[in-house]
Design a binder for these strands. Structure first.
Ligand SMILES: [Mn+2]
Ligand SMILES: [Mn+2]
Ligand SMILES: [Mn+2]
Ligand SMILES: [Mn+2]
Lengths: 147, 147
DNA sequence: GTGTTTTTAAAGCCTTGGCTACATTTTTGT
DNA sequence: ACAAAAATGTAGCCAAGGCTTTAAAAACAC
């Protein structure tokens, strides 16, 4: 236990953690909207601004702005006064997000979180689960299923 | 299976999930800065703007603004050109955040996430772990420790 | 003690993601 | 067909959280 070692308790990679958390946050809204639009299209054949806004708990101009950003990023398409649809890339993202969301909920329940709480928390948590962590969750759930 | 029933598969509490996730996000930065300031005070006796900025991975004007918000919210105090300190309320928050962060890391590791990844992901995840979920994590870890 | 370096402050710009208020278009009911 | 209602668009406001640039203060070296 040298002086070097004991001084070394301020990890130099700390900034990276925060930068990564901020990057994840920047994706979060895109991900939630993509998933939501996908849900709506599946349930009702199209995703209308009003329904998107209502389910996201925001006003319709806010939903409009989010959709504009999705379009700008190449994830969605729409024409004035018509519904919103996902590009292939957008649909792909939605599918990954949906699967990850489910896995997070399952893991939470598996470690003893009540289902409704798991569903609530997962909405925020999901965006910060890395690929590596997601894979670990899947392995854990598989192992638990195999009892 | 009436028309009414088949229409009814969109849970009405969905907006709440997103609203809660947004609320959690609004707290996230405050929490991280409080914890960081607490760390710095413990390690070096005071928290200087330069050090805060460097560890958070932001420029110093950004750190200054964050500290201004902490002060506005009654979590920190400081005078020009002097270090930043936490109020009782701020120190309290920092302590809870630190404990929660540790618990999240431990749980991730317990389900098979590599420690470094756990540390990275926890920085974002922690802010979306509700009290109920946190308690569930603690129970799970206790049970696992008792083997 | 003076000069240089480091730290902090201050001003101003940008994007995101909320909102309200108002205008326009589409849909619906009769 | 047309009036009323609903949906969508548009403009403009705000706060948060990034940034750069410039100025002032403090700390340090000599
Ligand atoms: Mn979400
Ligand atoms: Mn989700
Ligand atoms: Mn954090
Ligand atoms: Mn943390």
């Amino acid at each position: 236990m040298t002086k070097d070692a004991e001084d070394n308790d301020a990890p130099p990679n700390q900034p990276e953690r925060f930068q990564q958390a901020r990057a994840a946050q920047a994706m979060a809204i895109l991900e939630d909207y993509a998933e939501m639009i996908s849900d709506l299209i599946e349930e009702m054949g199209e995703a209308r601004i009003t329904d998107i806004a209502s389910r996201m708990g925001v006003t319709h101009p806010t939903a409009t702005k989010a959709v504009a950003r999705l379009k700008r990023e190449g994830l969605a398409v729409s024409r004035p006064y018509r519904g919103v649809f996902l590009t292939d890339e957008g649909a792909d993202l939605a599918e990954r997000v949906r699967a990850r969301h489910r896995t997070v909920v399952h893991l939470l329940v598996a470690v003893g979180v009540p289902p409704e709480t798991a569903e609530m928390d997962a909405e925020g948590l999901e965006h910060h689960v890395s690929e590596i962590t997601l894979k670990a969750f899947e392995r854990y759930l598989d192992a638990a299923a195999a009892k």
